[in-house]
Amino acid sequence: MQLELAQAALPRDITLAEWLLDPTSWTGSSGILPSLLDTLALCSAVMLAAVVLAVPSAALLAHLGRAKVLSAWLVNIGRAVPTFALAALLVPVSLRTGLGFEPWPIFIALTAMALPPIYLGTYTAVSGVDRAAVDAARAVGLRSREVLLRVELPLASSVILTGVRVAAVQVVATEPIRAFLGGDGLGRYVRDGLGQRNDTLLLGGAVLVAALAGAVGMVLSLLQRAIEPTGVRRLRPSVRSTRIATAASDLRTDPDTAPHASEPPGALTGAMTLTDDERD
């Protein structure tokens, strides 16, 4: 059994500008536009799945103050597992169960990659909500569920969105490996460029992939600003996107985890503690 992939064929002597400016490069079954849509569709599906899986569970567990150590463990392991290897491992499994070459393996692997930042962002954000606000909500008679839905989640929304955004950018940036796993998407041109030793295709594909990742990052940043209520925006921590990992240190330093807070750094959660602002 062999991989049957539609190769994007391109004359070797065409320049990058010529390729990108030629309308026929953009259309057709192996054109840029369908590939782009293919990529975006997969990424959207991945993000939807990851958000549905991670946000409610993390919010609920954080609300209940449960599973701190377990969460830290899962997040760390989730981060450690290489996405490409996981996806590859799933390819034969997917084939044997009749799900085909594509896109389940990459879908599952990307979802697994997106879960940790979203889960962590949500967990940290909800457990980091000002205790005074929560106490006040309880004091005026809100039920536990209402406290979560009407106080904790809105106050945590900014950090949650940041986690989602970071995950989305990562997913978009990683999705092109799909082209090396029997799929297509925007990564196909890099693959074909490498395969055909065609630098135009290779560079063009790389530029497209990088541009998409950059664009998605920017759009999501703007979107986050637009949908955040002003009051909440002011609460937004000045966390650089790639340092969402930092937020995880709160898992340890939450006042409720005093016994854990005095664990050696990294006993369970070390990889998540890039910075450590504890010790008043």
Partner: peptide
Amino acid sequence: TIPSVAFFGLLV
């Protein structure tokens, strides 16, 4: 934030 596939590809 540079996608790995793009980064490797750009250097080849």
